[in-house]
């Protein structure tokens, strides 16, 4: 597994147009990103297409990375997830395709905030387990599979507004739990 510094370095080189670095970046990260995309898209052919789209965004937006507060892997996974969700929803309905990279904000948190966030990341599994089982499953379904409120409401057999209330309450409890 590549180190954070290595991935950061490869992204920085890609931003300068270094194709060899981009090739190495792909080799180091594509299996993880493909796994993330497959969770959303299930179908291998669409997932391959989305993986290419995601890496095209990584190449084109590499220069924006340093301004972003996320870790390099989180930055790339966010692009992959959003690209996969764009593909999923384009397939289902006709929603305007967002540029996944546009969804990445360029806030620069203080090191302290970043450290807190990193510590919290490790706690999410434990905190999700504190929720009722189906509530935790709904949060996971939204994050890992890109499921919408309508989609979740249908599979949990509840009205859409109920699902939204559920999920928002779950997110609030999650946040409280992770801040403890």
């Amino acid at each position: 597994m590549a180190t954070t510094e290595e991935i950061e370095d490869l992204i920085a080189r890609s931003a300068l147009g270094d194709r060899a670095a981009f090739s190495r970046l792909y080799d180091r990260t594509s299996a993880k990103l493909f796994g993330i995309i497959l969770r959303v898209l299930k179908d291998r052919a669409s997932a391959e297409d989305a993986l290419q789209d995601a890496f095209m965004k990584v190449w084109r937006h590499a220069s924006r990375y340093s301004a972003n507060g996320a870790s390099p892997m989180t930055w790339m996974i966010t692009i992959a997830r959003n690209t996969a969700i764009d593909h999923l929803r384009r397939r289902k309905e006709t929603v305007d395709a967002d540029d996944a990279a546009d969804r990445l904000v360029s806030s620069t948190p203080t090191p302290e905030q970043s450290a807190v966030a990193a510590g919290e990341a490790r706690r999410i599994t434990a905190c999700l387990d504190e929720l009722e089982q189906d509530r935790g499953a709904a949060v996971r379904g939204a994050y890992l599979e890109g499921r919408s409120y309508a989609d979740l409401a249908e599979s949990f057999g509840v009205p859409l507004n109920t699902m939204r209330t559920w999920l928002r309450r779950s997110l609030q409890r999650l946040q409280e739990c992770m801040a403890r």
Binding site: S23, Y26, S30, A31, K32, F34, G35, I36, L38, R39, E48, L51, Q52, F55, M56, N68, G69, A70, S71, M73, T74, I77, T78, V105, S107, P109, Q113, S114, A117, A118, E120, A121, R122, R123, I124, T125, R140, Y143, L144, L174, Q175, M178
Partner: peptide, 27 residues
């Protein structure tokens, strides 16, 4: 940013799947 980091803890549970070599060539 904070929510992105919080939720990113779930990424660790996603298994890596190597894409076919042709995907890189195509990219």
């Amino acid at each position: 940013t904070a929510w992105t980091a919080r939720l990113s803890g779930l990424d660790a549970g996603v298994a890596e799947v190597a894409p076919r070599p042709a995907v890189k060539t195509g990219l």
